[in-house]
């Protein structure tokens, strides 16, 4: 059986804008990945528990309320505390370019902003996955 890429698509925080998260989830599914969708209004702790139990390769976070600077680093931190290693963390939403560097330092490998084609996200995940396999 071939190895499937498993992705958790999660909506931390309080905003209810799930259009982007759902479009990305659908696109990843159509690219042959297994996507676990958490639903809205999730706490960082809940997202981390889902990532752990589902043993996903990738966690995709979406926030449009401006709370990304607090929530994204918190999730990465909790994942590390839980002992998770080698998971790719990416993010999306209304995230000013000035914040990208800070988030990368905190462990969010890549931030996709509005207008990013879903194929770019698919390619990014695939190439990360290939690279990880060969290491």
């Amino acid at each position: 059986m071939d190895r499937k890429i498993r992705v958790l698509v999660a909506k931390p925080g309080l905003d209810g804008h799930d259009r982007g998260a759902k479009v990305v989830a659908s696109a990843l599914r159509d690219a042959g990945m297994e996507v676990i969708y958490t639903g809205l209004h999730q706490t960082p702790e809940g997202i981390v528990e889902a990532a752990v139990q589902e043993d996903v390769d990738v966690v995709g976070l979406s926030v449009l309320s401006g709370a990304h600077m607090t929530l994204f680093p918190r999730i990465v931190e909790l994942l590390r505390e839980a002992g998770v290693e080698g998971m790719l963390i990416i993010g999306g939403g209304i995230i000013p370019a000035d914040d990208h560097e800070f988030l990368r330092e905190k462990g969010v490998e890549k931030v996709f902003t509005p207008g990013a084609p879903t194929s770019e996200i698919v390619d990014y995940i695939r190439s990360w996955f290939e690279k990880r396999k060969t290491v």
Binding site: G13, L14, T43, S65, G66, A67, H68, R74
Partner: peptide
């Protein structure tokens, strides 16, 4: 209004962390 106000949480609630006055 910000998300905590919209969702009915006070600014000092745990769920409001990082969201106060943001959007």
């Amino acid at each position: 209004f910000d998300m905590p106000t919209i969702m009915g949480f006070d600014s000092d609630h745990a769920r409001s962390l990082g969201e106060v006055g943001k959007c």
